[in-house]
């Protein structure tokens, strides 16, 4: 039987939400593999991880916590070593990562140790004739590549926000295993946190992005107010033009040389919709564009558009959203 290993993510002993997507994707893959394939969800940490008990609810059959005091923060070499060992011992049919900053760093290391190919940032997965078939965007989202992975385990990472968590109650079991060995030569000394409460654009379910149409950095306040109206579910993104101008940090940039986002709702404000910007957001579920130029390319990918001056439209939108949440 070929079971599926779902690699979870924690920070400071708390499970990261992207882990729900990993378990959801792994469950889907296990069901497609058939034969009663199970999902083992594994997390590497210094000790117990808060939030793992809810994973049965997303379809995990077993949650395995691999602990070592040296693993309180991400240790690329140590994590890769113990995960590769685990993957070997369990002779899994597939190993699923999140294509988060950590997942994209960790998955290639584990794959190389297992001498197996890695398919990063997939947006869809299925099983055809017993083999895992994955789809991923290439050429900055201008094409989709469909790949068959031969042999096992098939190793994939899931693009965030694509595998929407599905509640699939299962009676899961839990297991904690203490792991020996060093954390490795590469040491995370510190995490300089972004301002408290700030959601990352790559993970927020709603993204409000601003471009050169905002005219000057201080005007991003109107977007921050709109984001705030969504009650902690929205992040503010930016086009490269405004990042290059120093108006916004690079961490907020959406696009080919910035972040790839797939939120439920993407609101592009004063963004023209250059091909490199679209590369980072075209897989959003619903796109809204607000632009004063009715011919702006962003309207070609937007589901809903308003032609008009953002300085009139956005405050009105903020007001309406606030009413909904009142």
């Amino acid at each position: 039987m070929s079971n599926v290993l779902a690699v979870l993510e924690q920070r400071d002993g708390v499970l990261r939400k992207v882990s729900h997507e990993v378990v959801t994707g792994a469950r889907r893959l296990a069901d497609a593999l058939g034969g009663g394939a199970t999902v083992d969800a594994v997390v590497v940490a210094a000790g117990a991880v808060r939030g793992t008990d809810a994973l049965g609810g997303f379809g995990a059959d077993k949650v395995i916590t691999l602990t070592n005091p040296a693993f309180s923060s991400y240790a690329p070499e140590g994590y890769a070593r113990v995960l590769a060992e685990r993957a070997k011992v369990g002779s899994y049919g597939a190993v699923v990562f999140a294509a988060s900053a950590t997942g994209k760093d960790l998955a290639p290391r584990v794959a190389a140790r297992l001498d197996r190919p890695l398919v990063q940032e997939i947006t869809d997965v299925s099983v055809v004739g017993g083999a895992v078939v994955a789809i991923r965007p290439v050429y900055a989202g201008k094409a989709l590549l469909k790949l068959r992975i031969t042999g096992t385990p098939a190793i994939v990472s899931l693009r965030p926000n694509v595998f929407t968590p599905v509640q699939r109650p299962k009676a899961g079991t839990a297991e904690t295993v203490a792991i020996e060995g060093p954390a490795g030569r590469v040491v995370v000394k510190q995490i300089k946190a972004a301002p408290a409460g700030a959601l990352d654009v790559a993970e927020a379910p709603i993204v409000v992005s601003g471009g050169r149409g905002l005219k000057e950095p201080a005007n991003f306040k109107v977007l921050e107010e709109l984001a705030a109206a969504f009650g902690g579910r929205a992040a503010v993104g930016a086009s490269r033009a405004v990042v290059d101008a120093g108006w916004r940090p690079h961490a907020d940039q959406v696009g080919q040389t910035g972040k790839t986002v797939s939120p439920t709702l993407y609101i592009a404000v004063g963004v023209s919709g250059a091909i490199q910007h679209l590369a980072g957001m075209r897989t959003s579920k619903v796109i809204v564009a607000i632009n004063k130029d009715k011919d702006a390319p962003i309207f070609k990918v937007a589901d809903y558009g308003i032609v008009g001056d953002l300085f009139e439209v956005v405050p009105k939108l903020t007001e309406e959203i606030k009413k909904l949440h009142a």
Binding site: S100, T102, V186, V187, I191, K192, A193
Partner: peptide, 13 residues
């Protein structure tokens, strides 16, 4: 230094 979600990781090697 490398960007991660919600922050920057400082890494020694």
């Amino acid at each position: 230094e490398r960007e991660i979600e919600g922050g920057v990781e400082v890494v020694e090697f």
